[in-house]
Nucleic acid binder design. Sequence first.
DNA 1: CGACCGATTGACT
DNA 2: GTCAATCGGTCGG
Length: 195
Amino acid sequence: MKKLPRSFYTRPTLLVAKDLLGKILVRQIGKIVLAGTIVEVEAYLGSKDPASHAYRGKTKRNEVMFHEGGHLYVYFTYGMHFCANVVTGKEGVAEAVLIRAVEPLEGIEAMRKNRRFKANRVDEVTISNGPAKLCQAFRIGREQNGTDLLGAEIFLIAEKPIPKSSIGASPRIGIAKAKEHLWRFFVKGNRWVSR
DNA sequence: CGACCGATTGACT
DNA sequence: GTCAATCGGTCGG
């Protein structure tokens, strides 16, 4: 049960993305603890990546992407959804990894309550098998943008690594540009992986 | 300014 | 499978 150190996040983004698989996302809300295993991610490489929010430089919205690795970048999209990214690399490097899916471990009933829409349609898989779904379940929104992942509110803990043979790669989902890159990584066969 | 559209989801045919 | 929801960012005039 060890919190990942800053040095985990400041490494090259594609490396961090693959290593995030299998790590446990922990969210403390007062006395409530929510936790889940990360099973699907996508890397966004800032200035090198036309699909990244930071491709055209720093703005008010994407400024957290330029922070030192180990912060949380939360953005609002489609007029109703939030998505959470782990910022990677050194200060000034606008790279991040989108957390696309987690397998719930702890606080599952609280997560279910946090989800909007008809609760009877939220089963154990759909509770957190997508980037905006897990943000609802973990109560991550505007206020969590910029959160330091070395703090007490939101952090990651190490687990035994996923074997390389169990990690799949594919093009990223839902983007129009840079589809040639296989920058989506997921745990093969895991039920919470989206699609 | 105005028009367009997005790192998505849930509802419905 | 198709489509609306809903709003802030981005880009063109």
